[in-house]
């Protein structure tokens, strides 16, 4: 769990920035963008700019697919719990 959380903390600020920027145009889609497009774009940007970071996870015994999938679910849970609070 520590490994997934570590990766998640790295992509979260990028995801939030992308989601916020897109939400200025599509305000109703904040949640959808946060859990899908924003997440995957931040994963892509992270892998593009930190190419060698994958060796950390591989040396810990995790594949890139496992990390992205695990982090996707963390993002889904966090998005589902906290984003509705913004609308309260």
């Amino acid at each position: 769990m520590k490994v997934y959380w570590y990766y998640y903390k790295q992509i979260l600020p990028v995801n939030l920035a992308i989601t916020t920027a897109l939400s200025l145009v599509f305000i109703d889609l904040f949640y959808v963008v946060f859990i899908s497009f924003g997440f995957f774009l931040s994963v892509f940007l992270h892998s593009y700019f930190y190419k060698h970071a994958k060796y950390i996870y591989c040396n810990l015994g995790f594949s890139s697919g496992q990390i992205v999938l695990g982090t996707f679910f963390i993002n889904l849970v966090i998005g589902s719990v906290f984003i509705p609070l913004l609308w309260l």
Binding site: A53, K54, I56, C58, N59, G61, S63
Partner: peptide
């Protein structure tokens, strides 16, 4: 092979994130 957790690989180029401190990386890894 890395999925076996019996293997570690030190690549040619540094793989540690440059913005982290040494103690943070020790704690993480």
């Amino acid at each position: 092979g890395y999925m076996s957790k019996e293997l570690c690989y030190l690549p040619q180029h540094s793989f540690l994130p440059t913005y982290k401190t040494v103690s943070q990386m020790i704690y993480f890894m």
